[in-house]
């Protein structure tokens, strides 16, 4: 029998962390309140004191804390990233989630006993890349990029069976349609880089304009979508926008949709993954409570050998659509 799947949940604030722990998270991932992590959004994330308190609370409740330090320091300014790693190590975080090779190197040499996970931002999509990160920097877990189908994940896990490494996959929430950590679209439109500054489609560059009775959502100088006056206008995430190609307007990259692999949990377990990740450090604690509770129930059912109950996430997707994304081949 497989060992139980680990449920890895997001927290953008101490309140969300408590909500995730109460709802049954096995691990909670979070970041510092700066550009060292890929959810560097205004008003979000943890300072050192909050992390220390969060660690104590989580550990008292048997939950692990993973600290995401998963942006790429730009030349000349590595200090904030080094400090973040030092702080996570000093405070006793259970692991750090890293993407940059220079930072992996720093962590492996300065804090060899600090467990290292490879962030999805490193986009390690194949066995040779995973082997490399494990051999060179002692990475113990790889978060797989959202580019692989379930059969490809299974094949990948078979190929890396000889390496002491776990794989983690996303099962719910926002969905990058481009290979993670390798997308400069938002940076091209706003000058703020997801890789360097930790924010995609940043709120600072979002604005809404009323044009001839239509609501237009813009990111920097570019129109991302248009809505009728009484239609709710979504947040203009670049790759979920509507654009024109060959004279036709469409959601060319992806519809405004959320990933839900809730129906694929047994398949993902059979494919050999260790941990399931829920996206959404920027979402509120109400979201965290509901999603984590639902997935906890599903995983407990699977662990007990029962079929997972159908998950009702309708309240969280707010009329948005759900997709199994790349896990099914036809998505490509």
């Amino acid at each position: 029998m497989n060992r139980p799947l680990e449920l890895v949940c997001p927290a953008g604030t101490p309140a969300a962390l408590r909500a995730a722990v109460e709802a049954g998270a096995d691990s909670v991932y979070l970041g510092f309140r700066d550009e060292t992590n890929a959810r560097n959004f205004p008003g979000l994330n943890f300072n050192h004191k909050e992390l220390a308190e969060g660690l104590k609370y989580a550990h008292d409740n048997g939950t692990r804390i993973l600290v995401a330090i998963n942006t790429f320091p730009e030349a000349g300014n590595p200090a904030p990233w080094h400090r973040a790693v030092d702080c996570a190590a000093d405070l006793g975080a259970d692991a750090v989630i890293l993407a940059d090779i220079g930072l992996l190197d720093y962590t492996a040499s300065h804090h060899p006993s600090l467990r290292r996970h490879l962030s999805v931002q490193a986009s390690a999509s194949n066995p040779e890349a995973i082997r490399f990160y494990c051999n060179a920097f002692g990475v113990r877990r790889v978060v797989l990029p959202r580019v692989l189908t379930v059969p490809e994940i299974a094949a990948l896990n078979r190929e890396i069976a000889g390496i002491d490494v776990e794989t983690e996959v996303f099962v719910f929430g926002g969905l990058c349609v481009m290979a993670e950590g390798r997308c400069a679209l938002s940076s091209y439109a706003t000058g703020i880089s997801p890789n360097k500054n930790g924010a995609c489609s940043p709120a600072s560059h979002v604005h809404y304009e009323n044009q001839r009775g239509k609501m237009v959502s813009k990111l920097g100088a570019f129109t991302i979508n248009q809505f009728h006056a009484d239609e709710p206008a979504g947040y203009p995430t670049l790759c979920k926008g509507r654009f024109v190609t060959n004279g036709k307007a469409s959601y060319l990259f992806e519809e405004p949709t959320s990933l839900s692999a809730a129906m694929l949990l047994p398949e993902l377990q059979a494919a050999g993954v260790t941990a399931l990740k829920i996206e959404g450090r920027q979402r509120g604690r109400a979201y965290i409570s509901q999603v984590v509770t639902a997935f906890r129930k599903a995983l407990d059912a699977i662990a007990a050998g029962q079929p997972p109950p159908p998950l009702d996430m309708s309240a969280l997707t707010e009329g948005q659509r759900q997709t199994t994304g790349v896990y099914e081949k036809t998505w490509r």
Binding site: F72, P73, G76, D100, I101, D105, A122, N195
Partner: peptide
């Protein structure tokens, strides 16, 4: 250019 080399540490490694 598709490999993320943003800083001195990463460059030195490669």
């Amino acid at each position: 250019p598709f490999v993320n080399i943003y800083n001195e540490g990463t460059l030195a490694w490669f």
